[in-house]
């Protein structure tokens, strides 16, 4: 790939949800503060060393005058800047972490295992079937271990890619069968570990249809860097059509 084309990719990717847009604002804010401090501190360091470089013979140490007023000012100022930044970002955190998914959100289960992703949809009956690791058979497509005796599992859809509708809330329930994995969609600015023994919910609302890569973001073994799939955000009607086709195929 030509280098100039690459340079365009050296930053945050497109933001496809409201949360991601708010995220970028907070990121930029923090970046501006960091850049100002960086330039100020580094140039002050160089400038002071240059300005007070020794030209004569070094004498014995002189007593430095102390200033508690200065200490007080810069302690307070940094506290205000740092905690202020945090407070500004707190709302965005609360927005995604403290609120439950709205009623009617599309419910999808996410399963991680060494080294593949699986996604499960409830099917027309709206109920997820029972699972048990006894029934797990990756070769036969039963990565979740759906219990064949449970009728509510008959119509469950299991997919290796994540399909979601745009403009509609989606609630994912994350779980792992073996070790810790982490679900990361850069364009959503979200990441959540999949912890075996836990079922962790997250929710989002993607607005921009497209195909987005999902890397595993928690070291899970030798195939960690190959644990790849995609999230396909589809317009709602295309999404409904996709689900129907799956249902008919089963």
């Amino acid at each position: 790939m030509p280098i100039l084309q690459s340079v365009g990719q050296w930053w945050l990717p497109v933001a496809i949800s409201q949360h991601a847009v708010a995220y970028d604002v907070q990121f930029t804010r923090t970046l501006v503060v960091a850049a100002i401090i960086f330039i100020a501190a580094q140039s002050a360091l160089v400038a002071i060393v240059w300005r007070f470089r020794d030209r004569g013979t070094a004498a014995s140490k002189i007593e430095t005058s102390q200033s508690s007023r200065l200490e007080f000012y810069w302690t307070t100022a940094t506290a205000i800047v740092f905690l202020g930044l945090l407070a500004l970002g707190g709302r965005i955190w609360a927005g995604v972490q403290f609120t439950a998914a709205p009623a009617g959100a599309e419910k999808i289960e996410v399963l991680g295992k060494q080294f593949a992703w699986s996604f499960r949809y409830a099917g027309p009956d709206g109920r997820f079937g029972r699972t048990n690791i006894r029934f797990v058979n990756d070769a036969a497509g039963n990565s979740f271990g759906l219990d064949p005796d449970d009728p509510s599992g008959k119509d469950d859809i299991v997919s290796a890619t994540l399909h979601v509708p745009s403009g509609r809330s989606v609630e994912l329930t994350l779980t792992s069968q073996d070790v810790i994995h982490s679900f990361f969609v850069r364009e959503l600015r979200m990441k959540q570990d999949l912890v075996p023994g836990m079922r962790i919910p997250i929710h989002f609302l993607a607005n921009i249809p497209g195909t987005y890569e999902i890397p595993c973001a928690e070291l899970c073994g030798l195939g960690h860097s190959q644990m790849h799939t995609t999230m396909i955000v589809m317009p709602p009607d295309a999404y409904d059509r996709w689900k129907r086709e799956w249902e008919q195929a089963q």
Partner: peptide, 24 residues
């Protein structure tokens, strides 16, 4: 110099919301 530089990226990572992207 590097203490300042390394500390400043901490300002991003200490914010839970920004860490959602930067973690790992």
């Amino acid at each position: 110099s590097v203490f300042v530089t390394g500390g400043l990226s901490g300002m991003f990572l200490a914010q839970p919301v920004l860490d959602l992207y930067f973690h790992d």
